[in-house]
Simulated assay, not measured.
Amino acid sequence: MAETALRTTTAPASALAAPASAPAATTATAAAAPATGPAIRRLAAARRPAPHRAPTGRAVAPRHPRAACDDGDLAARFALRLVEVLSGLRPIGQLARHTTHDGYRLLARLAGQGPLRRPGQPQRPRLARVHESAPAAGVLEVCVRVESGERHHMVAFRLERHRRTEQWQLAAVEAR
């Protein structure tokens, strides 16, 4: 194979300078002006994300991240995260945006006591049975039995739906 050498040439500084007859302002604005034309429009179009296409080929609107989350398994999903916080497997800050102010104070006090924390190596607790009740619209009360080794615990909590954001938030929690 023949090697090709890459050559660079430099032009003398006098060749790069603007002609003496051209004003300096015109040269500066010409260099700073954005290039336009069909090539630029093609580049801009290539940067735009393509619309999501369904398997059938038709364009569909992107879904909301929580669109797949239904309220059917909300109690069990929230109970698991809450039990992980109470057992020390998950930091309490991960539930901060899902709690009311009073609920966070209760959770912080309870997590500090560590009712589900076992001495030694942390063991992942298992949710045995989740009971839920809706005493009013926008309110969900949940009781869950937690198996942690040979010990069993009960955790009860109340979720309330926020009026403006429609997000479920922890309002009260108790563990024994």
Rank of each mutant, 00 (worst) to 15 (best):
A2C: 07
A2Q: 13
E3S: 07
T8Q: 15
T9I: 15
T10R: 14
T10D: 13
A11T: 12
P12F: 14
S14Y: 09
A15H: 15
A15P: 11
A15V: 14
L16E: 12
A17S: 14
P19S: 12
P23T: 14
P23V: 09
A24L: 12
A25K: 12
A25G: 06
A25H: 06
T26W: 09
T26A: 12
T27A: 10
A28L: 13
A32G: 08
P34L: 11
T36I: 10
A39I: 13
A39V: 14
I40L: 08
R42W: 08
A46R: 14
R48G: 00
R48K: 10
P49G: 01
P51Y: 09
A54V: 01
P55K: 05
T56P: 00
T56F: 09
G57A: 04
A59S: 09
P62Y: 07
H64C: 10
P65K: 07
R66D: 14
R66A: 14
A67V: 13
C69K: 10
D70G: 13
D71W: 12
D71S: 06
D73C: 10
F78W: 02
A79F: 05
A79I: 04
L80D: 02
L80G: 00
R81C: 04
R81L: 11
L82S: 02
E84Y: 03
V85A: 01
V85H: 01
S87G: 02
G88H: 04
G88M: 05
P91A: 06
P91C: 05
Q94T: 10
L95K: 01
T100V: 05
T100Q: 01
G103I: 07
G103N: 01
G103Y: 10
R105S: 01
A111W: 03
Q113H: 09
G114N: 04
G120P: 02
Q123L: 13
P125R: 03
P125Y: 03
L127R: 05
L127N: 04
A128N: 14
R129F: 14
V130N: 03
H131N: 07
E132N: 00
S133Y: 06
S133P: 00
A136I: 08
A136Q: 13
G138E: 07
V139Y: 02
V139G: 00
C143A: 15
V146T: 09
G149T: 07
E150A: 07
R151W: 14
M154H: 12
A156T: 10
F157A: 01
F157Q: 01
R158H: 05
R161E: 04
H162S: 08
H162E: 14
H162W: 11
R163S: 08
E166G: 08
E166P: 01
W168K: 03
Q169H: 06
Q169S: 06
L170S: 01
A171S: 08
A171D: 05
A175Q: 02
R176I: 13
R176F: 11
